[in-house]
Structure formats: structure tokens, C-alpha cells
């Protein structure tokens, strides 16, 4: 419908909308996060839900302890190799539609603990991440910004068409492989369905291939 006509109608007390808009509006303003903190970032997550920052303004204050009731998983903190299977299993237990915010340097890439033998180098190796927040730890404002970014993403989703969200595609998976402890490391070390390996621009200075990449 024409935006101008819609505004005119609203002045008369008539609200015209589409199913898609209503659906997205409802979903984006009642994101219930999973009550799930891993490390330092969880404290900033709690601070964001407290009086000063007040995530309730964005409809995301209802922290649910059960993954069955949650829409949003905030991976707040270092994911260790011992914890990674549990994180993936919790994600699998969440009902669609579900979203993931990867909060802090550790959840993105291992952060300052990346060199450690027990630290997973980013949760996006196993589950799809919608929004990344850098920082160690990110401020509560950054978390709120990530939430608003996620709301914008949800608002843009269309119910039909090839680019419809995952939960409306019957064939798209909503559960992912839970890694297991192998002889040396987690198996598999990453889930290739989910993880886009970063394109490393290897410096070949001094060789014949220099400048080709």
C-alpha cells in the first residue's frame, strides 16, 4: 500500500497493515533472550537489563531460563571446548524463529584467550550468528545497539520468496551438529554448513605471485 495513503488513513483512526509487517513488528519487539551467561560479558548483559540501560525499552527484558521459551541467544563470554557442545545443544533446543548475538571478542573469535588450548575460536563455527558485538567486554550500549540491529534485520524479513527466513523454509535445518570430544580436539572442529572460513589474504611479497591476490 502507498505510504502516503497509509498515513492519511492513520489520521482517520484506520490502521492498515500487511500480515508481514504485523508479524515482524510483533516478533522484533518481544525478543525473549535466553538467561545464559558464560563469562565476563554476562555481567554487562545483566547491567544492560538493569535500571540504567533498561533493555525493557526494546522488549527484551524477559530473560527465560529455559531454551524452549527463548527467541534470542546472547552468547556472552568465552566459549570453551568443554562448554561448546552445551551451547550448541541449547541452540538446538530453542524453538524457531531463533536468533544469536555473539557478544564480545571471545564469542566472536576467542578474543584475548585465543591462544589457549581450551578456548573455541568463535561460536560461529557451530551455530549461525546474526549480530556480532566486538569489545572486551562490550558496553551495555553496544548490546542495545546489537539488539536494535537485530530488530532491523527482523523487520526486513519477508514471509515469502526465496529470501524468506530460515524458519519458514521447510528444508532448512534448525538444528546443527553437536560437537563431541575427539582424540585431540572437538569433532568436527567446525561445521562447514555454518562457518564461512575467513578469506585470508596471505602475503606473498617477494614471490612471483605478489600482487595477484
Amino acid at each position: 500500500m502507498d505510504e502516503h495513503l497509509k498515513t492519511e488513513l492513520r489520521k482517520q483512526g484506520i490502521v492498515a497493515t500487511t500480515l508481514q509487517e504485523l508479524y515482524n513488528w510483533g516478533r522484533k519487539n518481544s525478543l525473549w533472550p535466553l538467561n545464559f551467561g558464560l563469562a565476563c560479558c554476562a555481567i554487562e548483559m545483566i547491567a544492560a537489563s538493569m535500571a540504567r540501560y533498561d533493555m525493557a525499552r526494546f522488549g527484551a527484558e524477559v530473560f527465560r531460563p529455559s531454551p524452549r521459551q527463548a527467541d534470542l541467544m546472547i552468547v556472552a563470554g568465552t566459549v570453551t571446548k568443554k562448554m561448546a557442545p552445551q551451547v550448541v545443544r541449547l541452540y538446538n533446543q530453542m524453538a524457531e524463529p531463533k536468533y544469536v548475538i555473539s557478544m564480545g571478542a571471545c564469542a566472536i573469535s576467542g578474543g584475548p584467550f585465543k591462544q589457549g588450548y581450551n578456548v573455541l575460536k568463535g561460536i560461529d563455527r557451530y551455530i549461525p550468528v546474526d549480530v556480532y558485538i566486538p569489545g572486551c567486554p562490550p558496553r551495555p550500549e553496544a548490546l542495545i545497539d546489537a539488539l536494535m540491529t537485530l530488530q532491523k534485520l527482523i523487520d526486513k524479513q519477508s514471509l515469502t520468496g526465496a529470501d524468506r527466513p530460515r524458519h519458514l523454509q521447510a528444508e532448512a535445518p534448525s538444528e546443527f551438529i553437536v560437537p563431541r570430544f575427539g582424540a585431540h580436539d572437538l569433532e568436527p572442529p567446525q561445521n562447514p554448513e555454518v562457518w564461512d572460513a575467513p578469506l585470508v589474504n596471505i602475503s606473498l611479497a617477494g614471490t612471483d605471485d605478489a600482487g595477484k591476490h
Binding site: 563469562a39 565476563c40 568465552t78 568443554k82 562448554m83 591462544q115 581450551n118
Partner: peptide, 30 residues
């Protein structure tokens, strides 16, 4: 235990003395 074992001591043994100061922040993060 061990779900948040981040190899603090091992990392600190490979860091300079001052280099492990930021890691101590993340021990008891309160």
C-alpha cells in the same frame, strides 16, 4: 568445574610480567 577454563596460568607463563596484567582483570570479573 572447567566449563570456563581459559588457560589463564599457561598464557601468563608465555607472556611478559606486564602482559598478563590484563588477564588478571578477567579472573574475577566483578
Amino acid at each position: 568445574f572447567g566449563y570456563l577454563h581459559r588457560n589463564h596460568e599457561k598464557i601468563a607463563e608465555n607472556e611478559t610480567y606486564l602482559g598478563s596484567m590484563p588477564y588478571t582483570d578477567r579472573l574475577d570479573y566483578f
